[in-house]
Design a protein around this nucleic acid. Structure first.
Lengths: 152, 152
DNA sequence: TATAAGACCTATAGTTACTATAGAGTCAAG
DNA sequence: CTTGACTCTATAGTAACTATAGGTCTTATA
């Protein structure tokens, strides 16, 4: 088998194949997503096919907005083919739920901003600006709780 | 309790009034959102009414998802009442536009995740998990661009 | 009066997933 | 022999805080 020469690639080629930056690969290595690769005599990292697959997996996860820690978890699961995949489903479900929460709060934020923008549809003096006036308004926290522990 | 004037408060009381943490106030000071306050002989920060208003303004902006740098800009505008408020409107418009982009990309991400989740609606062996299989699929970058400069 | 609780002080590091910078070694081509 | 592309390590910066450590000051209670 003449594989030990052809299949070995350097970091730049791996980066190109998967479409990430070289520094990102070294970062993933440092974070433990990628194993420490073999080195050529001059110290260059060398990678194989399996590393390309693994890096692609990582990138797909990241493209789906998953956190590094989640990906570590998925990578570990991927290496235990006999286990049940329920944990994968749970992780994805949780991720979707987080996304939905984030979407809802951004949606609400946008509504408030559009409303705020409506306070000053015209061009005029800063002193008359409804947006700045609104942003300077009262705060809820002051009305809710009684007093700090420093009371007589 | 009658110190110099009754409207001089310490950092903890300011934090309580506005509903932020003490450390956050010091952070805002370091970032230049709040002026360096006067100090008591023992080195404690003392604040006045205007500081309460200013901090409230800052918090309202942050609650609307604005960046510190944007808030600095608004604070500066707020102190020039004779100027035109067009820049305020522009800033808010830009902010809304950014939010809309973010919403769109999160929405798309969620769709992809829901689709991904559909690949494995059941419980079973990791080796059969459609989610992991999908995440391990081919990547676009490999097909798009030709080859790195290190071509034979 | 001693002491303990609480508020305050400064300075530093950690969070996330990278990106940027500096300084240096390796390798092939011209 | 120099140029340029590629590689290496190590450190710092990003956003907006949060956490930690270690210390001082004030006040209430035993």
């Amino acid at each position: 088998m003449a594989k030990d020469r052809k299949d070995l690639i350097k970091i730049g080629e791996l980066a190109h194949l998967v479409g990430v930056q070289v520094v990102t690969i070294r970062y993933y290595e440092k974070e433990g997503l990628l194993d420490k690769p073999q080195r050529t005599p001059n110290g260059y990292r060398t990678y194989r096919r399996t590393d390309v697959d693994r890096l692609r997996f990582i990138r797909h996860c990241r493209d789906h907005g998953m956190a590094i820690e989640d990906i570590k978890f998925l990578l570990k699961l991927r290496e235990a083919p006999e286990k049940d995949c329920m944990e994968v489903n749970t992780l994805v479900d949780d991720h979707i739920k987080r996304l939905e929460e984030q979407l809802a709060s951004l949606q609400a934020l946008k509504s408030r901003l559009v409303e705020l923008r409506g306070k000053c549809p015209h061009s005029g003096a800063i002193s008359d600006c409804g947006i700045l006036r609104d942003l300077g308004g009262q705060c809820r926290a002051a009305l809710e709780s009684p007093a700090p522990t420093t009371q007589s």
